[in-house]
Design a protein around this nucleic acid. Structure first.
Lengths: 306, 306
DNA sequence: TCCTTCGCTTCCGGTGAACGGAAGTCAGCC
DNA sequence: GGCTGACTTCCGTTCACCGGAAGCGAAGGA
């Protein structure tokens, strides 16, 4: 039994705040030179070096890497040297290390991001042209959404998310779509967590969330108003794969009408629903989803090509 | 002296055909159980596993990985297990391994690809809207171009390149631009190689190529007609960074007018030059390039937004 | 049904790759 | 000139890694 894929243990919730050692939690405060556990494989150390980089830390010195990865400098030096020799890291003229092109190349073979992206792109383009706002494509990984693609108009609402970035599932429209169609075990496990709140409008109550998820399944769209940022409202719809399961979600983010300030010339969110739904079906069809193919005539955009 | 970045040793030219062992070359043929050299670090083995994946091999079984990476199955099994546990690889329901989302995430922190891409995207979009053909953004790595982004219209010429893919410098317009502005050492070293030919029109003669590079520097554009694919013509211009050095190249690919067949309703390539040049300057400006900023008024695209 | 094949997984003893403290080097700064 | 902080090199010890071999289980053929 090849197994593994489905049950998914939720992949350790994205290690704590950076800089904090990644050992256990046993405070103790002591240097713990003997007690502390550690995943002591070379591979593990390499990973912890890679994890030292994130959206806010794209360039790190050797010492910073060593500190973030909780490794002795000399060890970090050796490993970083190997990583840089292969091209996983690159060293700038300033001596700082950055993620290298080679690593990006391999990463760009990931079917769940780039593979998906390639097929979705033309349709995302069209949707973007139509709304001239933020258009996002995301997948679920464990208990989080990972943004795979994003087209952003310079004048559109500024978002907190980022291509390659992660967010919790419950306060984002894409997350709600993905959660609503996730295996029951995942849903329960998310609902059992204490969910973080970002604005007064963030829904964190399990009962309320459960109701929302049911609505999302019923309507085929999720609408999130000001749950992460009071100024933004997003509308998302599910993207289905060959086996008709939901593998991604598509969203448009516009200024929130309920946000007093900026939203002035905003679009009425209701009008976005058909466009988002149609685009999501379009992508599903491009991926070979059975149900999307059925209503072909209806969903087809623009004129037929001669 | 932090060094390293510039001299660039050309990074071992993308290991041979896959499946071929990666040991030295000493044919010998023998099992070489004792003689054979090998880069025997764990990190190196991990890399050779990652290298087993490429555009034509996005899903591999354990045995295939072991064969491609030239590792004993049991060793591959252990390492692949660690990679999968972290998320660098993912195992599908079919038991095959694919590149994982986590690796893609880290890769998407690479400043030379995604960082560049993020700033270039809006301008690429506009150019794409204008020409409705293939628009590409690429950087140089050693003696190759690496394609960082690509917008392709469904009806445009089908290209051989791929986001995340590599090609030699000399037969591509982006490559010629990047080579023309590369450090002298790199240029000489490329010109000294025996350059592969792809079509009858591929320029491989060092003298001719040198002339082309000079023209590219003079004109600020490269035009490549049918050097990789007789049906395609591409026009490229340089993108400059903060220090005014060329860090990327932008191109538009259209059907070749000299190609008898399809090119029918093609665009006259000459007309593309200003658009490509303007877009490249636009990106340079967005990146903070000094020369691009200067002629701001001239390069500014479209009307000012109210 | 039994046998073979093939791919994956597990086990385990020997060993050399990796570890990391310590010392050396180099800038920048007081 | 001495100090600080970051990076690099050295080297003896040790334990993580290696990989052959055996065990499994599914698929296919007789």
């Amino acid at each position: 039994m090849p197994s593994t894929t489905d049950a998914e243990p939720g992949r350790e919730p994205r290690s704590g705040p950076r800089g904090r050692a990644r050992r256990g939690l046993p405070e103790g405060s002591g240097l713990s030179s003997s007690g502390g556990r550690r995943a002591p494989s070379v591979t593990g150390r390499v990973f912890s070096i890679l994890e030292a980089f994130d959206g806010d830390h794209r360039a790190l010195s050797l010492t910073e890497i060593a500190r973030a990865a909780d490794l002795p400098v000399s060890t970090a030096h050796r490993l970083v040297g190997e990583l840089a020799a292969w091209g996983a890291l690159e060293r700038g003229a300033d001596g700082a290390y950055r993620v290298g092109l080679r690593l990006w190349e391999v990463g760009s073979l990931a079917p769940r991001s780039v593979g998906l992206r390639e097929r979705a792109m033309p349709i995302l383009e069209d949707l973007y042209e139509a709304v001239r706002q933020n258009v996002q494509l995301a997948v679920r990984d464990g208990h989080e959404v990972v943004y795979v693609e994003r087209l952003a108009h310079p004048d559109a609402v500024r978002l907190f998310s980022r291509v390659g970035g992660r967010w919790p599932l419950h306060p984002t429209a894409v997350g709600q779509v993905l959660l609503a169609h996730a295996p029951a075990a995942v849903q329960e496990s998310v609902l059992a967590e204490r969910l973080p709140s970002f604005t007064p409008r963030t829904v964190t109550d399990p009962v309320a969330l459960r109701r929302i998820l049911a609505a999302v399944r019923r309507d085929g769209v999720a609408v999130c108003d000001g749950m992460i940022d009071l100024a933004a409202l997003s509308v998302a719809a599910p993207v289905r794969g060959e086996d008709d399961s939901v593998i991604a979600a598509l969203s448009v983010v516009v200024p929130s009408p309920s946000d007093g300030g900026s939203g002035g010339g905003g679009i009425e969110p209701r009008t976005l629903v058909p466009a988002v739904r149609a685009a999501a079906r379009g992508i599903s069809r491009a991926l070979g989803a059975p149900t999307a193919a059925r209503s072909d005539a209806v969903t087809r955009r623009g004129g037929t090509r001669p």
